[in-house]
Design a protein around this nucleic acid. Structure first.
Length: 584
RNA sequence: GGUUGGGUAGCUCAGCUGGUUAGAGCGCAUGACUCAUAAUCAUGAGGUCGGGAGUUCAAGUCUCCCUCCAACCA
């Protein structure tokens, strides 16, 4: 076995914000597909590093902590534990799940700010901002409301009017008031902020985007649109206490920035590196992150893939690259992006207050993670928004998992147990049915690999299912239960091939439904090091169908997937909403 | 308002640079089989590809107009 063709793949998922448990749509739009992709590439034998973290800074966290009556730090600790547990429950196989409030990110953020300033890309500018005297603080954009100067809508938010849709500057609002306290005792004050001079990076970013031809159209068009409009300089500090302090290179607090911190969108993406540093430290090799992120220290041959919802594309294609390229340091940049649309709840928005939609913790109380993973992957919101419906969910689980895969494993292992003493039959030679199965796999397995490589998750799931279905078709052709009556050897080859197919089905199921796949592979006694799908096994499919040692004993598993009953759907619809509560 | 994506069988969706009778899964109908979670396998019925005009020997697939839906807008 050589290492030829072994790749190093860095996978990151957009960082879930710390404020509250995520719903199925959030999961489906970045963390889950990133996990499926990471697992698939590990299956292929590649060296994968899958990094994620919570995004903890900013006003929402500060306000949520205030509402809960605890410190922001405590609030974040609490929420982090909840999100970590939910991720673990869903089998998200992060190599590290970090926190943007950690010391690594703080150092990185301050480092980048210093370097960018030294490169002439950061400068202080005066800004006029709304200051709430009663709250004793400046009010960042969304936390001031008032009357829209354009359409006179009375509840326009500081950054945008929800009525006429125009972008606003908070200081232009008529009769502004604090969205925090409702106080109208506000005034406009001058304040200084750091600005990242993105306009100076326009040409550099465009050149980089132009080179990135294998981005999906959505990502490219968003990036190009921003470039066409011209990159705007933007404030990268905010008047908050929760966040990363603004320092001088010597570590002291920058004068005039005692009550300010970096804007959450400046520090959050840097946590991709920060979390990798946390990972390296945790595994006792503090420099291990370098070969993944520093192109002068080995990261040149890394394929870096980012997963995110469509709302994040602009930040990942433009803002974050400005930070990295502006540093003029040899940091790894993204190679490929995969952006997702939203999962909707019967076409409407997920909403806790309106009792609509399932959140990650609730989902796990209802059914095993694999059920959700399968549905959300097979119906990933790739081309457009995708509607979750209980009916579709039930149909997908019962048909794909229970009937096609679960039943296949069940029928072949039970039959083997009843007629062949639960041992892999040793006799019998391949015939027509086996040849058909081989040719089927010879076309389907490469297609499966290709769909994963292209990050077409719906297609990958569909192909996975098609391969399972082909196994059932094979058994119909081989019909060992018929042949058994007259020719035990002829039945034996059918059972042996069937068992090997079950193993293969478990192997290819691992990226999407890891728990069930493990049950299958455990039942068949497949050792850990044989649970892969490396290229050499694809090159010899016939060998795959006779991989289990002859005479090897198997243990038929229990029912792998219990079907979802109609009354369960009824109950869940009642509890979490369904058709009736759909948004018009 | 701007931008992007979308409107294809009852449902969820594939259909690349235009080219024989428009595809898949689910659901439905019929048949087969009995190893299996009443599972599986086979066959079949379902679509004037949102509306209109145009380009072309040829358009779901390109152009224009209209309409509906969704999302994004530092």
């Amino acid at each position: 076995m050589t290492d030829t063709g072994k790749r190093r793949i860095l996978v990151t998922s957009a960082l879930p914000y710390i404020n509250g448990i995520k719903h199925l749509g959030n999961l489906a739009g970045s963390m889950l597909p990133a996990d499926v992709y990471a697992r698939f590439q590990r299956l292929r034998g590649h060296d994968v590093l899958y990094i994620c973290a919570t995004d903890e800074h900013g006003t929402p966290a500060e306000l949520a902590a205030q509402a809960a009556g605890i410190s922001v730090r405590d609030y974040c600790n609490e929420q982090f534990a909840i999100q970590k547990a939910a991720g673990d429950g869903f089998g998200l196989s992060y190599d590290h799940f970090g926190r943007s409030s950690g010391p690594e990110n703080e150092r990185l953020t301050q480092h980048f700010a210093h370097v960018l300033e030294a490169n002439g890309l950061i400068e202080e500018r005066n800004m006029r901002q709304v200051f709430s005297i009663d709250d004793g603080r400046f009010l960042p954009d969304r936390y001031v409301e008032g009357t829209c100067p354009h359409c006179e809508f009375e509840k326009a938010r500081g950054d945008q009017c929800d009525s006429c849709g125009r972008l606003l500057d908070p200081v232009d609002l008529i009769d502004p008031y604090s969205a925090v306290s409702g106080s109208k005792n506000v005034e406009i004050r001058e304040t200084r902020h750091l600005f990242l001079l993105q306009s100076k990076m326009q040409d550099t970013i465009r050149a980089w985007v132009d080179k990135s031809t294998d981005w999906p159209p959505l990502a490219r068009s968003i990036a190009l649109k921003w470039l066409d409009e011209g990159l705007r300089d933007r404030a990268i500090t905010r008047d908050l206490s929760w966040g990363i302090p603004v320092t001088n290179p010597d570590g002291s607090v920058r004068e005039g920035f005692e009550n300010k911190v970096f804007y959450v969108w400046f520090d959050a993406p840097l946590e991709y590196m920060g979390a990798t540093q946390e990972w390296a430290k945790a595994k006792g090799d503090p420099d291990a992150w370098r070969s993944w992120w520093r192109t002068d220290e080995g990261a040149d041959d890394v394929d870096y893939v980012q997963f995110m919802g469509k709302d994040n594309v602009a930040f990942h294609t433009v803002s974050f690259p400005v930070t990295i390229l502006g540093s003029e340091e040899p940091w790894k940049l993204v190679d490929r992006l995969k952006a997702f649309n939203w999962v909707t709840w019967y076409g409407g928005k997920f909403s806790t207050s309106n009792k609509r939609g399932v959140f990650m913790d609730q989902a796990l109380e209802l059914l095993p993670a694999d059920y959700w993973r399968w549905y959300l992957t097979a119906n990933a919101p790739e081309g457009s928004d995708a509607a979750f419906t209980w009916e579709g969910f039930q149909a997908a689980i019962n048909s794909d998992l229970a009937n096609v895969l679960g039943n296949f494993v069940n029928r072949i292992t039970k039959y083997c147990a009843s007629k062949f003493d639960a041992k892999v039959p040793e006799t019998g030679a391949s015939g027509e049915a086996e040849a058909w199965m081989v040719s089927e796999l010879e076309t389907r397995l490469p297609q499966l690999v290709e769909h994963y490589e292209n990050m077409d998750f719906r297609k990958a799931a569909a192909e996975t299912r098609a391969i399972w279905a082909a196994g059932n078709e094979y058994l119909t052709k081989a019909e060992p239960w018929v042949k058994y009556k007259s020719d035990v050897d002829a039945a034996a080859i059918g059972v042996r091939t069937g068992l090997n197919l079950a193993a293969l089905f478990g192997i290819i199921a691992q990226p999407i439904i890891p728990e069930a796949a493990a049950m299958i592979l455990d039942a068949l006694g497949i050792p850990e090091d044989r649970r892969t799908l490396k290229q050499d096994s694809l090159d010899d499919v016939a060998a795959l169908l006779d991989a289990l040692p002859h005479g090897h004993e198997i243990a038929p598993p229990d029912v792998l997937f219990r079907k979802i009953e109609d009354d369960q759907v009824g109950e869940w619809t009642e509890r979490f909403g369904g058709e009736d509560q759909a948004q018009p």
